[in-house]
Amino acid sequence: MKKDFFFLLSGEYKTLPAAELRSVLKILDPKSIIKEVISDRIAIAETTLEAAREAVKRAAYTKLRGIFFGRAGNDPEEILRVIESINPDELIPAGSSTFAVRGRRILGSRIDKLGLERRIGERVLMLRPELKVNLKDPDAVIYFISTKDETVVGRLIDMKPKHFFSGRLAGRRPFSLPSAMQPDFSRAMINLAEVRPGGRILDPFAGTGGILIEAILLGYAAYGIELKDWIARGALKNLSHYCCGYELLIVGDARSPMFRKNSFDAIVTDPPYGRSTTIPDKSIYLLLDDFLSKCIENLKDGGRIVISIPAETDIDELILRHGLRIIESHLARVHGSLIRRVVVAE
């Protein structure tokens, strides 16, 4: 049974979080629909309970989700009318004896959060007088998210655990390089490939193995290629540490295919720009041209390529020339002057 859910997205990047959630829901429930994205931070989607639950675990940039009750301006009376419009048994599910009200202000909201939490709590008790407030361990949580102009109200279901990625941060892995991609960004790229769990993913520029680690943890068979032996050995340390028994890494050149045709559901990769580049005598453009000409045959029909490149590198014409079409692209400032562009093509 489908319901409307709200999802709070990370504010780290502008378009990537919503795009990632859309792809994750499509993987989990192909008939899911994102009805609206509010200010790039709140997504309203129609999907199944199971897909919504798994999406929070799977997506890198989705913080929490809940059952959507409605939206209003930031006038407390308008918000309270949303509460009153919900069936009391939907507001707080049957079997619950305690509840709490929690809210979050984002994007410059100036709403009186504590005052609104109190007023919503009072209104819930009017509708369900048998309930008691429990701020420490409630059976149900009414949750609101307020932006500068409006408020979304619902019942919280679950949140991504704090420090979800901390143990896998690039600098905390057994082996790292200054240019290593962080696990959340790697995971988002994998999700954009829209491969169902159990599929096969190739990272032909594997580096320290960050994309491979996240792909394996998401339930994929992940294969990597790395040109430099010493980097490949370091990547194997990382894979053994996080995904022991799934170390599928080859020392080789991404421009020389070593797999059968149609072997992979997706290629997800971060080519060697900006680091002590593995192809010092070629620009990234020429490298990608050579790589695409050789490796597209490894991709199954309809499979996607998700690639991260410097924002100033224009590869659109190159992708089209190799018979691919660009599905979407996203800009992400990594640090300082480094802005990545994530391109999704099929």
Rank of each mutant, 00 (worst) to 15 (best):
E90P: 03
L135T: 05
R128N: 00
K282D: 10
E90H: 05
H335C: 07
G219M: 08
R119E: 12
I33A: 08
L114T: 10
L324I: 00
D29H: 04
R173Y: 05
I211V: 09
R196Q: 10
K14S: 04
S23N: 08
E117C: 08
V124W: 00
I267E: 08
L125R: 06
T15W: 13
C295V: 13
N87E: 15
G323R: 06
A266G: 06
I250Y: 12
L169H: 09
P30N: 03
M159L: 15
I327H: 02
G198A: 03
A19T: 13
K63M: 07
G108C: 02
F69T: 02
S329C: 10
R118L: 13
S337G: 10
G274N: 11
E130A: 07
M126S: 13
K35M: 15
R110E: 15
G323A: 07
H335M: 14
I309M: 12
S256R: 15
F99I: 01
D265Y: 07
L324F: 04
T15I: 14
P93D: 02
L135G: 02
E312M: 07
L217N: 02
D4P: 06
S97P: 01
L288V: 10
V334G: 07
K57F: 15
K2W: 02
R341C: 06
P129M: 00
S85H: 06
V306M: 11
D290N: 07
E122N: 11
P280D: 07
M159G: 14
A332C: 12
G171C: 07
R53V: 05
S96N: 00
R58W: 13
I27D: 00
A52C: 11
A235Y: 02
R22I: 12
E90A: 06
L299T: 04
A180D: 11
R173K: 12
Q182A: 15
L135Q: 08
P138E: 00
V268C: 05
I44M: 14
G66T: 06
L286M: 12
A222W: 00
D265K: 09
T15G: 15
M159Y: 14
Y13G: 05
D149H: 09
I145C: 10
D301Y: 13
L192G: 01
K300R: 11
D289N: 14
I315Y: 05
E346M: 14
D253V: 02
R333K: 15
L202N: 04
M1Y: 12
S256T: 14
I86K: 06
H163T: 11
E84A: 09
R71K: 15
L320P: 10
K237E: 13
E50A: 14
P272N: 05
V56E: 03
K57I: 13
I284E: 15
P183C: 04
R71D: 14
F68K: 08
L218W: 03
R340C: 09
E12C: 03
L217A: 01
S283A: 01
E117W: 04
S240A: 13
I34Y: 08
S263T: 04
N74G: 08
Y220T: 06
P197D: 10
A188Q: 01
